[in-house]
């Protein structure tokens, strides 16, 4: 009941952050719209196995929202709360400050899922991108990807002492994550060796799992396993190094 009050308040505050709305919710889909408006990206490509670039970019867009939420938005928020004594203030009440952390992670997770739904809908409606043919596998891959993004953000929040440092570390992790997710070149079109390596990174594995489910296959257990392993390792590390003040 008191943690619900925390969640409700934090949701309201989250609603007052137009920056978070834009970068998590609107930016990824906007990128999809821009890329999709290039005529060449709407013709089938042989090197993509007969799909269009815009098709390949929908899963990338889905991951981009998560990466922004987990690495760009979550860490400065949490470190800011710690820096400004909000977590400490809460530790003197019957409510544990962990309620604030869970609220933040839950809200960012929800925003990432919303962003994914928006990308899928716009892809389907505007660019006629087929919806995932293996929806259950897709949802599973999506949720595991959200989990790993949040775990990564939690670790950044744990390691960074100030919100400035959190922004810096978050940004440093942001670009390689975007690369692995296939923002620059989709993972399917990466050279074989590079794709093999990228598959072992959280967002590379997530990209492959989403691609497989989109194509109608059950996502490979190797990819899902990579996601679970990263989530566990990052969460344990975050819990180990997190400081309340």
């Amino acid at each position: 009941m008191s943690s619900t009050a925390v969640l409700k308040t934090e949701a309201r505050l989250f609603g007052r952050e137009p920056g978070a709305h834009f970068w998590i919710l609107a930016f990824p889909t906007l990128l999809l719209v821009i890329l999709g408006s290039i005529p060449g990206f709407r013709t089938t490509q042989d090197d993509l196995g007969g799909i269009r670039i815009v098709d390949a970019y929908v899963p990338v867009t889905v991951l981009l929202g998560m990466i922004v939420a987990g690495l760009q938005s979550l860490p400065p928020g949490i470190t800011g709360y710690r820096e400004r004594g909000i977590l400490r203030r809460m530790s003197t009440t019957p409510v544990r400050p962990s309620a604030l952390l869970s609220a933040h992670m839950g809200l960012h997770g929800a925003a990432a899922v919303l962003s994914a739904l928006l990308a899928l809908s716009v892809g389907r409606i505007v660019f006629d991108v087929a919806l995932p043919r293996q929806p259950f596998g897709y949802v599973l891959a999506l949720l595991l990807a959200v989990a790993v993004a949040l775990a990564m953000g939690a670790l950044v929040s744990a390691l960074a002492r100030t919100s400035k440092a959190a922004t810096a570390v978050g940004t440093a992790a942001f670009f390689p994550s975007m690369f692995c997710a296939g923002v620059y070149i989709p993972v399917q079109t990466m050279p074989d060796v590079l794709a093999r390596i990228v598959e072992f990174t959280p967002f590379g594995a997530a990209a492959q799992a989403l691609n497989e489910a989109a194509a109608g296959d059950w996502p490979g257990w190797d990819h899902l396993g990579v996601l679970v392993a990263w989530t566990v390792v990052l969460t344990v590390a975050a819990a180990r190094w997190f400081r309340w003040e």
Binding site: A5, T9, R84, I86, R88
Partner: peptide, 25 residues
């Protein structure tokens, strides 16, 4: 407790802060 050098969420209103903290007890 009133702590030295502690703050609240920047965009939280006074009413919301009071309601939130009341819900803790």
């Amino acid at each position: 407790a009133q702590l030295q050098e502690s703050e609240l969420q920047e965009k939280l209103t006074v009413r919301e802060a009071l309601e939130l903290y009341a819900a803790f007890y």
